[in-house]
Design a protein around this nucleic acid. Sequence first.
DNA 1: TATTTTAACGTGTACGTTACCGTTATGAAA
DNA 2: TTTCATAACGGTAACGTACACGTTAAAATA
Lengths: 354, 354
Amino acid sequence: MGRQKKTELSGVKEIARRANVSIATVDRVIHNRKGVSEATRQKISEIIAEMGFQPNILASRLASKKVNHFAVLIPKSSETDYWESPVKGIERAHQEIKQYGIVLDKYFYDLNDKKSFTKAANLLLQKQCDGVLVAPSFIREATDFTSYCQAKNIPYVFINSDIPGRDSLCYIGPHLYKSGYQAGQLISFGLKAGNVLIVNISREIDSYHHLLRKEDGFRAYFNDNKGGQIELAKIDIRDTDQQSIEETLDAIIAELQGVDALFVTNSRVRSVASYLVKRKLEHKILIGYDFLQENVKYLKQGVIDFLIGQKPEEQGYLGLMTLFQHIVMGGEMAQVNYMPIDIITKENYEFYKN
Amino acid sequence: MGRQKKTELSGVKEIARRANVSIATVDRVIHNRKGVSEATRQKISEIIAEMGFQPNILASRLASKKVNHFAVLIPKSSETDYWESPVKGIERAHQEIKQYGIVLDKYFYDLNDKKSFTKAANLLLQKQCDGVLVAPSFIREATDFTSYCQAKNIPYVFINSDIPGRDSLCYIGPHLYKSGYQAGQLISFGLKAGNVLIVNISREIDSYHHLLRKEDGFRAYFNDNKGGQIELAKIDIRDTDQQSIEETLDAIIAELQGVDALFVTNSRVRSVASYLVKRKLEHKILIGYDFLQENVKYLKQGVIDFLIGQKPEEQGYLGLMTLFQHIVMGGEMAQVNYMPIDIITKENYEFYKN
DNA sequence: TATTTTAACGTGTACGTTACCGTTATGAAA
DNA sequence: TTTCATAACGGTAACGTACACGTTAAAATA
């Protein structure tokens, strides 16, 4: 398709011409380096504004062989393979932007070990970096870490869970409360009367906090929409091995004299599904979280009725991209970016994008 | 963060060095232009492969100042504002890639006028372009158009609806049949027994075809999952003014002696919602398509229970990006890219991303 | 044989920006 | 006065690639 029309007066060169200075001086004010008199700086700034000058990022990045290090600090994949998805998203984003001289440093911690967070964080802080993407699973530790970042003037974005008070560039993740609320609506739509059991399965007391937000939202739905004859009950399960789960469920269901629907507040819904199959209770309504292989298996079988997805891969992708936009492109980003509350069923799972 | 480590033998220069040729020759084989002996071409190709050479797109685009014209041929926003979303997505994509010298030419046609499609298409073909994104609403006309494209060797991607036989780069849009199937599941989940009415509202006989695919899927669900006492009925409405719709609905509902749920096969669900409000039938289950302002209004009011979304904005975005990836980046794309079948409710709509 | 063509390759400049280094002028310290 | 520091600026070589053009030698033609 031919070549561009003769460059119609744009770029630093044109700015330099109009201001009667060299392009070097223009460059100085663009990157507000020192060595320019206030008068010239003013003049050039005006010209830039009036031209609506946008530096050519291609040329810029090419010339300044600058390299930016982005660090990510997230849990390693453990019991569930949940955290593989954000990693995938992060790597996809990296693939797209490494042309611009972005290098990625990954640090992993153990969700079952607070200390490992601090350890990884210290390792991270050792090395220089220009931005960090962090999943602040442990509130206190993450707060300490981000304080360091602020002291060193390193911007950070939160992913997957938020610490509202902090001065993060952005939070990218689910609105936990509302996702529980949504689960409430779904169960309510399918069950007009009966017993509903809320199931919290988590070994870690810290991540427990997240589950509670979902539970609150869930309960709130039934509070806001009375009318049906729904009875809510709840069970916390700390021993996450399958046998303990099954025994606990047996006990509570016996106590309640049967349940009609179960809401599992995290991705461990697969364990409950497995239990229901074993007890031949597949017809119970079952809702849980996360588009994981094991969960989808039960979704396909019709044991799980709905999965709520929070786009973990997209979270990772957007997280890194947010850093990129802010640090490299100099764009402004929204302060929070809630993921959609995706409803996944046997009928639509094959088109779902994490 | 400092400068990059001394360029460790990469790029065309290194290839040239290894092959004992000039970089111009390397350039020739990279862009497979003529003027290179078969032997040298072979040798250079091998070196490229073994080095895993990836041309620096920044430098490439900068040097070549090449401009690619992408054309889009889609309906103009009319009765519904549905097509505003794809346009938004397209423009967002353009914003991202215009740095690479992409210029966008938009052509609109009238969904109520086949001729306007051909007219716009001819206009488009007048001008040179390197790729086109087309919503092939009229099968015959679009087939003709894409034949021209193939003759002129212009790649094209389909958006929003497909023409399976054609040799498009890619189809990006919903799986209509399955989306209907999904609607079936939702209604079935909330209604164990009763009358369900399928409502097709469309003036254009041509776009009717799409509605039928959805209806087929919807019916298929109840066929595959018998058990409930669900009776299906159907009504086609060609006169799309509100009064005709209401009269027709009055008649059919009287005839059926009441309905418990309605499935509207397109975005005109708002009209049915309006009707239900007027007749004080808001409690009926109502499902329809598309995340449009008017529809969301009734969703919020609880008149519409579920909306099925097909990410129109993302369709536009991905459509243009697919062209970009294929034509500029030289990447290979999947042949079809079905959008997820999104389930939107009163509870999650505020987080939905079109 | 002399001339022209052509295949096959090399040279050099441009793309828009960055950053290093050099230059000038001015004023303060010696 | 000279010396020197410093602020304010200019010149220009890169960055990696693209491409117009120049060159060479061999083959084709006259």
